[in-house]
Design a protein around this nucleic acid. Structure first.
Lengths: 199, 199, 199, 199
DNA sequence: CGCTAACCGAGACGGTACGTCAAGTCTTAAC
DNA sequence: GTTAAGACTTGACGTACCGTCTCGGTTAGCG
């Protein structure tokens, strides 16, 4: 998910990157995100808050969404990878519960909704965002495919549609925020999914 | 949905509002929305395109989202009201099919996704947006309530969660746009809903 | 000094001009002039304060300076005309004392300095202003001419320069306002004038 | 007279100020001042004429009068400092002749009259303007004080009033412009001053 | 151990759009 | 046909960030 270059360019010398600056930028981003929201977040503001030059921010992150994506990744830290409990119910319960836990974390919530907004506004970023979404969707399709193999789901299951059923209601709740996103809701969501997919 | 005042203020004189200007503003908004997207839409640009003074735009619409909401309403024109076919399947089919037809209309698609984005960025607008979303949700809850009365659905049905299942996957497809929103998908969505709600 | 038409146009019908509106406009102008100064005075503000439509103000006064000039004239009311005491000292004392009394009247002070400013900014008004100044200057030249006739002043007196000596220091004090304009200063000014002109 | 900081702020980095941009702004200001006058001068117009971003102008000059003051100073270049010829007549002749030379320079004339106008309109600037005027007045009071010391003038001379006699008629001519400001007039003015002050 | 490349801070720069304000003109309704 | 009300075009205001750039100064590691 990181946007920062990971390859090793053939360095021949020069000052090393200042990791402190890096961290303080990401922390400032997370803090400002929670305090004022994605809309009010500006590169200039982040630089000032992090006590860092604006050009330093631009050196490492080419845009505001790239910065926020990194802040999100930094927050997520050790991700629970793809669950594999042996049953569809187990896998879905694990995955969805993990998903709804995002609602508890203001940094991740603000980051995700902000990035979704950005994707609507900036076509260039939309592509990158869609690619990231695809990696998340794949986790679910894999999980569902295993269930088909185990014959828990019919072979005719429309995996794409099924995946929409997993993410759709969650994102809708996150974005519209008509009611708080409670981890308890994850249970109801899973029940619905099982009923809809495996009748 | 309109933001412009519809009441009749106690006029005692004064030049009448220029309806032509009004229309050309809304049309310019719709055109620019489709051409460049919500993000690139500026009040200044709309004014120029509509051959209207910037202050005229500001007189009637206090912000960009208000303008886009009106353009959306203007586009929608005569809305299909709440369907009432006598059966849950009939009502859901009618409602969802109508919903997915939005995907065919670039103006409405760009407007909706843009407004959802704006709601993430501007807390003040978020409230107005949520209120509008609520009116849409009510159509569905009413529809579902009737089904409960007819005993097509169990009395224990969680209407709020059920409503999320109707709108969630639709909005998710609209926003992520990982695949085109085909009206044919409406059928699959309805089937899923019926299976999930009325087992 | 008034800009409003004073002749009796051959009216043939129509609503009569509202004299109350007229007065309230001039009073509003004077009040706002004192409260916020010439710079902050706007036609819009005057109209609002006078409870009159903006177009009504524009009908009778074609510009802000024209309005202020009328307000000034309205304030001055019964002007002391050209003094004629029989001696240069007497005439100058009367004239200059009257001049310095303006410093006591905030409406006239603000009006005059504002109009002088306007004359610097608006070439069209500059001409009208210069014409008004000329009428004031003529009072002094006439007065000085009488003194020449009476042989109180040499026949070679440069009347134009002498007039500048009368008005210059006064206006300079009024505009720069480095010290309050005291009527007592008039006496010193006259003494200087007599010494400079009639040695 | 300059408004821009002339001291050496403790620079620790940052791109250096573009002197070309600076000059072109001042030149554009001077040119537009002469062409259209102070009233028609706008920051936006100056920026456009100087091929400079509006924000660059605002970075260095906080307002239109500040900009014009700098343009005036730039025009004046090497000022003749306080004259000290040894006699009152000599000092006054030098000072007043220098003063009247302003009338020959359209940039300085337009700048001065415009600034005087601004001082009437903007109370905040009035203070700054008065301070600048004070520095000019001091030159004259010093000059007169020397004459008192030399007993060319009586010890009872009212220096403030005398200074008004020096500047008043000059400014009055400059502002009213009822007749061109000829350097030859300086001679008459000095003669008058000497007669009025040292009888 | 000095060279050199990349870093970092500071901040100037050309831009773009913002939302506001008042100017002056024009259109309509009421009296 | 004047008056009130207010919509309209126009143009500048001063502000905020954008993303780029140019500096002075620092800090490795390589040779």
């Amino acid at each position: 998910m990181s946007i920062t270059p990971s390859g090793n360019p053939p360095r021949t010398g020069g000052r090393l990157r200042n990791e402190d600056a890096h961290h303080s930028v990401l922390e400032a981003t997370a803090a400002l995100l929670v305090e004022n929201g994605y809309g009010a977040l500006t590169i200039e503001g982040v630089a000032k808050r992090a006590n860092v030059a604006k050009s330093t921010v631009y050196r490492w992150w080419k845009s505001k969404p790239a910065l926020v994506m990194d802040a999100y990744a930094h927050e997520t830290a050790t991700r629970v990878p793809e669950p594999d409990t042996g049953t569809l119910a187990g896998d879905l319960t694990a995955f969805v519960a993990d998903l709804y836990r995002i609602g508890r974390d203001p940094v991740r919530t603000k980051a995700l909704t902000g990035l979704m907004a950005e994707a609507q506004l900036d076509p260039a970023f939309a592509e990158a965002f869609r690619a990231w979404v695809a990696t998340r969707r794949e986790l679910v399709t894999t999980l569902l495919t295993r269930a088909v193999t185990r014959e828990e789901l019919p072979a005719t299951t429309d995996l794409d549609h099924a995946t929409d059923l997993v993410f759709g209601p969650f994102w809708y709740r996150l974005l519209v925020a008509h009611a708080p996103l409670d981890p308890a809701d994850a249970k109801a969501h899973v029940t619905t999914l099982l009923r809809a997919l495996a009748p």
